[in-house]
Simulated assay, not measured.
Amino acid sequence: MTEAILFAITIVLPNLALMGLGFFMQRQGQASQAFIDQASSFVFNYCLPCLLFFSVVDSEVDYAKQVLLIAVGVLITFILFFGAELYAKRYIEQPADQGVFVQGVFRSNMAIIGLATVANAYGERGLSIGAVYMGVVTILFNILAVITLSRVSKSVSDTWISRIILIVKKLATNPLMVALLAAFAYKASSLPPITGVIHTTGDLLAAVALPLALICAGASIDLKSMLSLSGISMQASIGRIVIAPLIAIAVGLSFGLTGIHMGVLFLMVGAPTAAASYVMAKAMGGNDILAANILAFTTVVGMFGMAIGAGVLRGFGLM
Rank of each mutant, 00 (worst) to 15 (best):
Phe24Ile: 14
Asn293Ser: 12
Ala275Ser: 15
Ala217Pro: 13
Met1Pro: 00
Ile5Met: 08
Phe7Trp: 04
Leu115Asp: 07
Asp158Met: 08
Leu176Cys: 00
Val168Asp: 00
Pro193Phe: 15
Ile36Cys: 02
Thr258Cys: 05
Ile232Thr: 12
Leu229Gly: 01
Met226Thr: 05
Val178Asp: 07
Val251Phe: 09
Phe297Arg: 09
Gly311Lys: 12
Val301Ser: 04
Leu75Lys: 08
Gln30Thr: 04
Met262Gln: 15
Ile70Tyr: 03
Gly286Trp: 11
Lys65Arg: 13
Asp222Glu: 12
Gly73Leu: 08
Ser233His: 10
Leu246Phe: 14
Gly114Ser: 11
Met319His: 06
Phe24Pro: 02
Ile241Glu: 04
Gly270Asp: 06
Ser228His: 10
Ser41Gln: 14
Gly126Lys: 04
Arg163Pro: 03
Ser189Gln: 12
Thr2Asn: 06
Gly104Lys: 15
Ala34Asp: 15
Gln103Leu: 00
Ala276Ile: 14
Ala244Tyr: 03
Pro245Leu: 01
Glu85Val: 14
Thr117Asp: 04
Ala121Thr: 14
Gln235Glu: 13
Ser277Phe: 11
Leu257Ser: 09
Gly305Ile: 04
Gly309Tyr: 07
Lys154Asp: 12
Ile232Asp: 01
Leu68Pro: 07
Ala84Arg: 08
Met268Tyr: 08
Met110Cys: 02
Gly231Lys: 15
Gly196Phe: 11
Leu75Gly: 00
Val57Asn: 09
Thr138His: 12
Ala183Glu: 12
Thr138Gly: 02
